[in-house]
Design a protein around this nucleic acid. Structure first.
Lengths: 197, 197
DNA sequence: TCAATACGCATACGGTTCGTATGTGAAAAA
DNA sequence: TTTTTCACATACGAACCGTATGCGTATTGA
């Protein structure tokens, strides 16, 4: 039986994460006070410290939640593609598109790395990167991609997409810049393809 | 005549920037207190507010200084290369190497963007990226590189190099993965080259 | 069913940091 | 020399964070 206490605790955690996600996205991590967040969730800082250990722990929880959502969307985009190679490109493009959302930009691309450190160390980010690495390795095995180090290629691809995302998010006209970024991304990625045809 | 007051002021600004650069690099922006920084420079917060307007202004000054140094190194690396295209690759490798330095990583890649916003919108419009953009534009004009958007390409190239650097920095054996990263970087960048042969 | 315990969360307090408002002494102007 | 300017120091109040402690309800055991 799921104890009633556990249910309550899960509920308060959800409320705190929801309020924090909202506050971090709009004000940024540093400017968002724990008093405001907890009050917004109908609680106090006591609950926050008990459940997450502190402000950083709460950010970690928010990051994990968003990260999981992003990974799900990346997988969906890849599976929708007609070929593994197109799947890799679709993944990158999806990643770029997600950065149009202020929430992703602020929490995942700016405050997250600054407060929590290297994103590639985040649990779900590792899974995402690992999957990209495997995809590239498969493309290497089938001869579509040059025999480079799969992990290195995956990290560079991800990094390129990430910076394109940051660029778009900060641009005056995101919708106008998006196609440029996507085109440049496809060109860059093409560098991994076997040259002969 | 350069008034004595102006000389004094320039001196105190230099001392503050020096102390701040040290503190930001080691403790990070958020954890570095203004009292510590100013005391370390033999001053008080009064001088800081008078000269830089606040903590963010001081960070901006530090960022501008480091940015200028980075550009100088990028230019030097590019001029040392045998061809414009090799110059671009040399820039990327140099960028990777610079990102391995904790100071650059902490201030320019993590705290800077988080506190000041996207680098391309910094008042001093980060010359680093501008430099790469110009290099790529030149390569496009001479026909070496495909006619993509120069800024987009520069962003992606920088992003790839940046992530490569973060990967290397977090690796168990940095010196072992460095060549892998450089090789993958060269392959990716080759995607920008004209295909005909 | 009832007493005892566990524990999730609220409350209270001290310490640190930040921003502004005001004071001061030396350089510059008169 | 007197007056003004201004670079910087000092003083004060407010906000925020982390820990220690208290309270009330859910859970456990007899």
């Amino acid at each position: 039986m799921a104890t009633k206490r556990a249910q309550m605790m899960e509920e308060t955690r959800a409320k705190l994460v929801r309020a924090a996600r909202e506050a971090f996205a709009t004000k940024g991590y540093a400017a968002a006070s724990m008093d405001d967040i907890t009050a917004d969730a109908g609680l106090t800082r006591g609950a926050l410290y008990h459940n997450f250990g502190g402000k950083k722990g709460l950010l970690q929880a928010v990051v994990d939640q968003i990260d999981a959502e992003m990974v799900a969307r990346l997988i969906a985009a890849q599976e929708r593609a007609p070929s593994p190679w197109e799947g890799l490109l679709a993944e990158g493009v999806t990643y770029i598109e997600m950065a149009l959302e202020p929430e992703v930009q602020r929490i995942m691309l700016l405050d997250g790395p600054a407060v929590l450190g290297d994103p590639s160390q985040w649990p779900n980010q590792n899974a995402c990167l690992l999957r990209t690495t495997q995809t590239i390795q498969a493309l290497i095995d089938e001869g579509t991609v040059k025999p480079v180090d799969a992990e290195a290629a995956a990290r560079l691809i991800n990094g390129a997409a990430l910076n394109a995302a940051l660029w778009i998010a900060a641009a005056d006209e995101p919708r106008a810049v998006l196609p440029k970024a996507v085109e440049a991304f496809r060109q860059l990625a093409a560098g991994l393809l076997q040259t002969e045809r």
